[in-house]
């Protein structure tokens, strides 16, 4: 990636919550999908001058990645605290045979 986005990184429960304010449009879809209600509005402002989101408003994060999955703007990356979260696929789909680049 030739452009870089600056994260706000917050550790919470089982997750490391990376939020990219330049991408977050403050839609709130992630807040509604979090099963432990930990996501809430933050003080920082995002892409459109609306508040971005942060964890720490409910029970501890369980690193389910639902918020990352539904964010239309890829503004959240949840890293698992054991360090195994570095995956960019929705599912770990293997390369289809015959289609290798």
């Amino acid at each position: 990636m030739s452009v870089a986005f600056k994260p706000i990184t917050t550790e919470n429960g089982k997750g490391i919550f990376h939020l990219f304010p330049a991408l977050c449009k403050g839609c709130g879809l992630c807040i509604e999908k979090c099963p432990v209600d930990t996501i809430g509005w933050a003080r920082q402002l995002g892409a459109f001058g609306t508040p971005v989101v942060e964890p720490g408003h409910g029970k501890p994060c369980i690193a389910c990645k639902k918020c990352q999955l539904v964010c239309p703007d890829a503004a959240i990356w949840i890293e698992r605290r054991n360090g195994q979260g570095r995956t960019d696929a929705l599912t770990a789909a293997p390369q289809a045979p015959g289609n290798e680049k």
Binding site: M1, A4, F5, P7, A74, A75, D88
Partner: peptide, 13 residues
Amino acid sequence: AAQPQMPRVWRAE
């Protein structure tokens, strides 16, 4: 630094 987990085919620019 951590970067957004966009699909590779997305144009980050």
